[in-house]
Structures are given as C-alpha cells and as structure tokens.
Design a protein around this nucleic acid. Structure first.
Lengths: 229, 229
DNA sequence: ACGAACTGTAACAAAAGTGTAACATTGAAA
DNA sequence: TTTCAATGTTACACTTTTGTTACAGTTCGT
C-alpha cells in the first residue's frame, strides 16, 4: 500500500510543487489550506506522514502538532514542519512540541523527499511488532528475550531463530527443509536430523516447571507450534 | 521567573551600559567588581547566566570560570566571556576552560543580548533532555560526564558514544554493524572485533566498587543494556 | 618535542554453541 | 504382532563467538 502524505499549506505555489514531487516519488498526496480543515481531514485520511506549514492563516502549525500528538490514533504519525526563512529561532520549541523534523524554506524537493523517506522508513520499523506471543510463550525481538510461563528461557542463537520462525506463523507446519532454508540460509549443507536436535533443545529450554508442549511433531512432514484446529 | 544575569566587570562605564541593556531586555542584573567578590555573590544569587570580564583587577576571569565549573550547583550555568581587543589569541584556551561563548570589546549591545538569549534558550531546553538514566548509570550529554553508582566513570570518546547509543534505546539489541554505523559512521571500515574491545573497556570503566553488569552480550547478535522484558 | 591518553588490531584463552553419529523409542502399516 | 522408517535422546568432538591482553600507531595538550 502506498504511503499517504498530508500537507497543510496555504501557499498555492508551494502546494503544487509539493504535490508534484511527492506524487513523483510514488506517494499519495493529500492537502488542506487551513489548520482547521487540516485537523478535520487528517482524521479521515489517517496519513502516514504529515507536512505542516509553520504559519497558516488561521492557527500556527504547532497547534496542529499538539492536536495530532494528543490523538491516540494519530499520535505516532511522523510530522515535518516547514518554516519560512527567519523563523529558525523558534525551531527548538517546534521540535519540543513534537514534530520529528523540519525544513526551512526555501528547500530543495530532493531534500524534502529524502527526509520523507527517512521518516517513513523509521516509523515502519517502529510499527514492526517486536513482541511475538503464542499461548504462554512471549518473545521480544528487540531484546532477544524469550519467556515461557513468565520465566525467562535461555535459548541459543539457532533455537531462538527457529522459534521466531515458527512463531511468525503459529500452527503452520514447516518441513525441515523450510526451516533449514530460513534459519541456516539456502545452499548450506547440513543434515536434516540437525533440526531434530535443535527442536529437542528448544523444547527443553521451554520446559519450565510445568510441561510446555508447544512444539508439535507432524510425522514425516515437519514441525509446528501446537495450535488447535 | 525572570532570568538572573550576573556580570563580573571592573570598568564602570561598561557596567552601566550592560545594566541598561540587560534590564531593558527584561532580565535581572547583578554585578561584582572583582573576581573575589564575584565568586562570593554568584553562589548566593545563583544566576542563570554569567558575564565574565577576561581581565579583572585581582584574578583573570578564567579563574572564576574554573571555580564555577567545579561547583556542582553552578557547573551548568552558561558563561559568556568578554575580552578586550587583542586578547583573541587566548580565546581558544578560554573556551576550553569552560565558557560557552565570548565577545570581543567593543561589542554592540544588540549582539550581546542576542547571545544571551541564545544561551538561555539553549540551556533551558538542555535541562530537559540532556540527562540519560539507566539503572544506576547517569549520563549528562551536555558535559559528557558519566556517573555509575554516583561515582564518575572516566570514558574515552568511543566508549562514551557507544554507551550513549545504547542508552537511547535501553534493552534493545544492536548488532556490531549498527553500533559501527552509529558511532563510527557509515562506510568506515573498522573490524567488528574493535567493538568487543571497546565494550570491554566500557564495562571496565563502569565497574566501580560494586559489580555493574549493565551490558549484555547476545551471542551472535550483538550487545544491549541489560533490562528485563 | 615529549608524554599521556586513545584507537584499532592481532593473538591467544575461554566460553558457548553446533552438527553428527549412535542408540532408544515411537507409531503406523502390513 | 511384527516390522521399519521416523523421531527422540544423548554424548562428544569440533567450530564459532566472545573475552582479554598486549602493543604499535595517533592524537592532542603541555
């Protein structure tokens, strides 16, 4: 899905410049000419990134900033502030208000696109689910910690990778070859049976006080997380 | 609360000029005519910014500078040094001693006010985000000082940068490459193992009397600050 | 120029993880 | 029930990864 970029800007000439460059870069472009209209439309559009003019006819851009940051569904949306020349002195407070980046007019379209790309890339990684959960197993891919029944399970790198792989598609059965390809990488010659050993180690590591039979063996097919139906 | 500005200056005519301009700009003005008196009064007044004459009857302004920087409660106060014409050659060392800015006489009052405003604004914002904390580690990104268990830890520049990087995302695992990109910059060819050595030095520097196991090794992945969950 | 502090690398030691074979056990088809 | 291939389990030699140390080249302030 192509990212949606919303601009709140009253200078007509700048709007068309933005629209042209942003669409050329493969993004959808949305626009409002006043802060008031912007706040309304932004809620409908739910853009992936917002460009705010610092000075708008009805309210300063910082007001939109506060508005966005205080709305749960929008608060993570990256914001780039556009300021006219000579407004730099206020920038610090602008950044404190909650915008993620700023550009001083006049700016090169190339620069703008670069910053947009950077921010979108960053927010994409942010949204990446860093916590995988399955039954009583919790896995934090940021910290590389795994918990089973709220107790930390100590896994080696291979066991960790296998579990992560399985947990991304809970219940689905994977052949040993698929696991090998994913965890070891393709064209690495390792015996199939090696998987069995690692599965054994994984099961053991996940065995806390209580029995945790989370990994199912599908005879002559492979392994999967043990989900009903 | 209006900001308090303290001047240590012996030239009578300059003092009245300063007083007039600073009060006009809405700040409170305090004054001492000698270094000795200045050091006493500054402790009482606790000003938000200090103007120091380079040459004073009893001691050079740099002595006051050192004095201020060595006092916990004053050490963050921004200092502007005022120098007579021809003393520029000494400025380098003056900046190193710990003043934040300087002006050569004669200067325009406008210029002085501009610098005062800039420094006050900066130090105001600084106090918000300049301190990173993690468990028993405290890090002041302004002064580049690091404290572990309330004792100062002496880190080299590289160690400092690595720690700062890790502390911005506590608990998150970073690969050696990510650390390299962030601390050394991209496309700089340095061996991965170099990180290991710096991590070792960092760990050692953070080892005060008590064991400080704050840096976790995630085998075949990288390092992170050691946080639960 | 001299010395102190800082860097990056190599080399070796220690620790942790890995893959394989050999044997035990299981489960389903004959 | 028997049989046999698939899987579970274990032990162990081997590899990889990381910790640690020493050192030579640099930088930087005095």
């Amino acid at each position: 899905m192509t990212a949606k970029i919303f601009s709140v800007e009253d200078e007509e000439s700048l709007v068309s410049l933005l629209e042209y460059n942003i669409k050329s870069s493969g993004y959808d472009f949305y626009h409002a000419g006043t802060a008031y209209q912007g706040m309304i439309d932004i809620q409908k559009v739910k853009p992936d990134l917002i460009l705010l003019d610092w000075m708008l006819p009805d309210q300063p851009g910082t007001e939109i900033c506060k508005f966005i940051r205080s709305h749960e569904s929008l608060s993570e949306t990256p914001i780039i502030m556009l300021t006219a020349k000579g407004e730099e002195s206020d920038l610090v407070s602008g950044l404190n208000i909650g915008c993620d980046d700023y550009l001083s007019k006049p700016f090169s379209p190339k620069e703008l696109i670069a910053r947009i790309n950077a921010l979108l890339r960053r927010s994409k990684n942010k949204n990446k689910e860093s916590i995988l959960e399955f039954q009583n197993i919790k896995m934090n891919t940021d910290t590389h910690r795994v918990y089973c029944c709220n107790k930390e399970a100590k896994l080696g790198p291979r066991e960790y990778s296998i579990l992560e792989f399985l947990m991304k598609k809970p219940g689905r059965v994977f052949t040993r070859q698929q696991i090998l390809d994913s965890v070891w990488g393709t064209n690495v010659y390792v015996s199939d049976r090696t998987i069995d050993v690692h599965i054994r180690r994984l099961r053991q590591a996940l065995s806390t006080t209580e029995e945790c039979k989370v990994i199912r063996t599908i005879r002559s097919s492979g392994y999967s997380l043990d989900i009903e139906a």
